[in-house]
Structures are given as C-alpha cells and as structure tokens.
C-alpha cells in the first residue's frame, strides 16, 4: 500500500545532533526493524517519520513529502505506538482504544468506528480488560492497549517504539505474530525499534543497524547479523546460532570493556 523513502534526514535536539544523513527506502508491506545501542537514534527516527519531530532532509510517504500533508492525513496513514509510561486520566481501555479513531470519527462514535475498536481489542486479546481503568493495568497490558489503539487507527504504516519491552516472552511472541499477520494480510508497512536482535531477525524482513545517528548497515537480517557487526555496533562479542524453528539466535557472550556509550 504505502512506501517510505527518506533522503539525508538530519535531526538535532538543540545543539546535540541525533541523526545524520539517514537515507533509506522501504517498500509496501515490509517489516523493518531498527536496532542499535541506546542513543543510536531509533526513537528519534520513528518520531521524524510521524512528523512529531521536524527534521532536515525529506521524508516521503508514497512519494508525498510529509511536510505537505495535514496532521489528520498523517494520522490516517501512520499509526504510532510509543513506549508506554504515560498516565491517562480517567480512561478505560475502551476509551484509550477509541482514541485510535480520532482521525476518522466525527463527534459521535459511528458503527464503523465501534467495529474497528472491537476488532482491535479482540486481535490483541484484551476483551476482558475493555472496561478496566487503563492506569490500573500492568505495563505489559498497557502496551497491548497501545498497540490496539494503533490498530484501531487503521493505518497503512505502523511505527512501534520497543513494542515488546514490558511483555513476557509469551506475549512478545503473540504481539509480534499479530503485527506480522496484519502486515502480511493487509500490506501494512511496519517500522519497529527493537532491542532483541533474535526477535528482530525472526519477524523483520529488513534490518537497519544504527549507531550514533547513522546507518551502519541495512539489509536482510541473516546477511546483517554477524559477530563482526555486533561487535562494531554494540561493542559486544556474540555468537550467532541457528535453530530450525526460531531462526537466527544471537547469543551475547561479553561486553568489550572500556567503551563508552
């Protein structure tokens, strides 16, 4: 459905540069995992693609520059799942998922909106939480609610910032399988920042390794993930294993001493 193409994207927080000359192209329906150490620019890049931040350079969504799109056009095209942690006052899970309909709904919540909210809630398996207070949920449950909110938004592109960081391994697999299934069945393009390289390799078609705001490498996970590159990007010695079902597994061995972040 929708491609993403960036050209020499640069961004600084005040005088501290975070992204330099990020250029890549992602085809419709692909799943791209952004990996790299803390502070490498993964979250910043995601925020730039959603125009929450305003970088230099160009970001094209289906060949249209995002700077020429209205806020609502962006919201009907791009869904964003931030890292959880924000308290939401007096809102049930249903209320939070309903927020995903903001760019679509009129003042009244229409039947079509409710259909989509139900679909999202069921897809994430959080029916039992629908009337619970959002602030009372565990971090993992909140993370699922935020993913459901983005699914309710019915986006063509889904951006996720460490979507599995508060989930146990069962729910990690479930959530990523759900996102991957939707991408395969609807052609939704996905960009997600992830820390776990094995998870990234398993679910992503493409991997982008970032370090200090620049792209170190971009390509297929099995081509990119090598002990040499992991040492280059993370300063970690690692062994790469292969399991016929789980795929590529990165086993970190030791941190290379004396290297600052």
């Amino acid at each position: 459905m929708v491609t993403i193409a960036t050209d020499t994207v640069k961004f600084s927080y005040g005088s501290a540069p975070v992204l330099y000359n990020v250029t890549f192209r992602l085809e419709t329906g692909a799943i791209l995992a952004l990996v790299g150490p803390n502070g490498s620019g993964k979250t910043t890049l995601i925020r730039c693609i959603d125009r929450i931040l305003h970088p230099e350079g160009s970001i094209l969504i289906n060949e249209q520059n995002i700077h020429t799109m209205s806020r609502n056009d962006i919201a009907t095209t791009i869904g964003y799942v931030p890292q959880n942690g924000t308290k939401i006052a007096a809102a049930t899970v249903f209320d939070v998922v309903m927020m995903g309909r903001t760019p679509h709904m009129s003042w009244r919540l229409g039947d079509g909106d409710i259909d989509r909210i139900e679909y999202a809630i069921q897809l994430l398996g959080i029916e039992d939480l629908a009337e619970r207070d959002y602030n009372e949920l565990s971090g993992g449950q909140q993370q699922k609610v935020l993913i459901a909110r983005a699914i309710a938004q019915d986006p063509k592109i889904l951006l996720l910032d460490e979507p599995t960081n508060s989930l146990d391994i069962h729910h990690q697999l479930e959530a990523l399988a759900t996102i991957s299934d939707i991408s395969r069945s609807t052609g939704m393009t996905v960009v997600m920042a992830v820390h776990d390289l094995s998870i990234a390799a398993r679910y992503a078609d493409m991997l982008m390794m970032l370090k200090n705001g620049t792209i170190v490498a971009i390509g297929k996970p099995e081509e990119l993930i090598t002990p040499e590159r992991i040492r280059e990007v993370y300063n970690v010695d690692a062994r790469i294993l292969y399991d016929p079902e789980a795929g590529l597994i990165v086993a970190p061995l030791r941190a290379v001493p004396g290297v600052a972040l």
Binding site: R47, A75, T86, P103
Partner: peptide, 24 residues
C-alpha cells in the same frame, strides 16, 4: 468547547500521542 471534546480526550494520552492521532 463541545467540538473540541474529542481532541481533549486524545490529549489526555500526552502531546506526542495526540499529535500522532491527528490532534492539532
């Protein structure tokens, strides 16, 4: 005020989430 109600709801999730959901 009533017309802004939907935006105010979304704003309760934080500025970043609200922007991303199309709220000016």
């Amino acid at each position: 005020f009533l017309l802004s109600a939907r935006s105010l709801n979304t704003l309760s999730a934080g500025d970043e989430a609200a922007k991303s959901l199309g709220v000016p």
